[in-house]
């Protein structure tokens, strides 16, 4: 009969379209590794690798204002502040900036700092030789520690950039939190859980 023929065609079409929908659902997930790969290839993730310096000539005629900022992203009360909020530097000059982290809690954990820049395109002109953001840092309970970053501003920095803000956000790595060696404090413990 003609209708059964049509039914067969229809259910064939149905199966094909369901496959399309499922493939597209999987494609959404496939975007995750694809995106990571593209970021790697295009160098978006180079923020946490040391840069190579080609030109070390100090340009004394020019002064750039560096501003420093640091924040934590976590629910427990630790903090990080820049020891120098502002610095006048010359392009090509080796600059050393220090940040102080305080962890008054009885937790120890690992943390990772992620830098960001204002203006955004300054990222390619701040050449970091050494940075606490290159590795995960182990933060002990009750600890106060200083972290440093050493960098050079590339002399090819466009002349309209007079101020660069370098800001770090420190993230607590999930699953690394441990109750430290200090006395057990049920309030903090329960407040967290």
């Amino acid at each position: 009969m003609k209708t059964t023929e049509l039914d067969k065609q229809n259910s064939h079409m149905l199966r094909k379209l369901i496959v399309v929908a499922l493939v597209m659902f999987a494609f959404g997930y496939a975007l995750v590794p694809l995106y990571k790969k593209i970021c790697e290839v295009t160098g978006v993730y180079d923020l946490i690798k040391p840069d190579e310096i080609v030109n070390t000539q100090v340009d004394e005629t020019r002064t750039v204002m560096m501003e420093f900022d640091a924040n934590t992203r976590s629910e427990i009360g630790w903090e990080i502040i820049p020891l120098d909020v502002r610095m006048n530097v010359h392009p090509g000059e080796l600059v050393h900036a220090t940040f102080r982290l305080t962890n008054p809690t009885d937790m120890s954990f690992d943390a990772q700092a992620i830098p960001s820049y204002g203006p955004q395109h300054a990222v390619q002109y701040v050449k970091k030789l050494e940075c606490f953001c290159f590795t995960q840092q182990k933060i002990n309970a009750g600890e106060t520690r200083e972290f440093s970053v050493v960098f050079v501003i590339d002399p090819s920095l466009p002349s309209d950039v007079g101020t660069i803000t370098l800001s770090y956000t420190m993230f607590e790595i999930e699953g690394t939190k441990n109750l430290g060696n200090q006395a057990f404090n049920p309030d903090i413990h329960e407040g967290k859980s």
């Binding site: 379209l17 399309v20 499922l22 597209m24 494609f27 959404g28 997930y29 995750v32």
Partner: peptide, 14 residues
């Protein structure tokens, strides 16, 4: 719709 709605479903599932 068939090609794009599943991607949104993936995003909200994530």
């Amino acid at each position: 719709l068939v090609a794009s709605m599943p991607v949104l479903a993936g995003a909200v599932t994530m």
